[in-house]
Amino acid sequence: MAMVTITINGKALTVPDNLTVMEAANRHGIAIPNLCRHPQLTPFGGCRLCVVEVKGLPRPIASCTTPVTEGMEVTTMTPRLEEHRRFVLELILSDHPNDCMTCQATGSCQLQELAYTYGVKGERYPGERRIYSKRDGNPFIERDLEKCILCGRCVKICDEVQGVEAIDFGYRGFKAKITTPFEDDLDCEFCGQCVSVCPTGALTGKLWKGKGRYEGVRETETVCPYCGTGCNITVHARNNEIIRISSKPWAWNEGLLCVKGRFGYPFVKSPERLTKPLIRRASGNFEETSWTAALEYVSAWLKKIREERGPDAIGGLSSARCTNEENYLFQKLLRAGVGTNNVDHCARL
């Protein structure tokens, strides 16, 4: 890869020539405000907040889409550029509910953060605001399109990462919006990748509503229990109740989860959930027991069957919800402990 030398804010930097100006700046610790750029996605260039000045060019350019070229002289912060950014934020907020008080995203909203940084309230250009009263009836994802800034991140992650293409841009001009085919209710895998990249409160989890934002919320890093993939998840809990699950972008699964990992947590508090082992007695009824008693019961029967019928009379079926380590131990138990190769896994079913 060829290297080029560019200047950003007077500082000479040597960077690979396949970077954009924004990537080059970020690599050297220079942040550039933006709303539509996401490192996992191809650049979009729509929000226009990341504009920078390049010597010799008549107008400011979007740093997220412009490739670096040899000798480029870039300035990321001038009074004029800051004025431009304020202009864009004013326009976005002029068409935004600005109901941060009750918004799920408050505190984690990039739009709110930029508005705060620039002191913009969205009062400079008052005008019509988009009103979408219809609520999407899907079970998992709250789509509040009035808060949507059309950054395109949800469209891109659905297409470029998840490969589902459940949503896209529709309509023109001020009426442009992100839509499902024929404006039906969202009917997709509900992986929630779109929710995870939304920079505002336009996409949130339906289960999250009213449960808590950041006050009193405890975050615990753990591994998703649903399958052997072992995605890293962050469990958000308040008052000892899980209120939300997310995943950090720097986790090995790059912050991506599936519908179960992201939204399948209410089982934890389900009254139907088994919390103690049960043994079915001769009567056919289940009887609650202790773990020790249950394990002893199982081992006694395994021994008895092996003695009477031989080890191959026993077979073991493991679960996809176990980790690799647990599955390894299970086959070892069957092969070395019981002495049979009759072991399989439910994912084959």
Partner: peptide
């Protein structure tokens, strides 16, 4: 509708 200045700016 892709970029903010055109989508919202021309509306204003």
């Amino acid at each position: 509708g892709k970029c903010v200045p055109c989508r919202v700016g021309t509306k204003r």
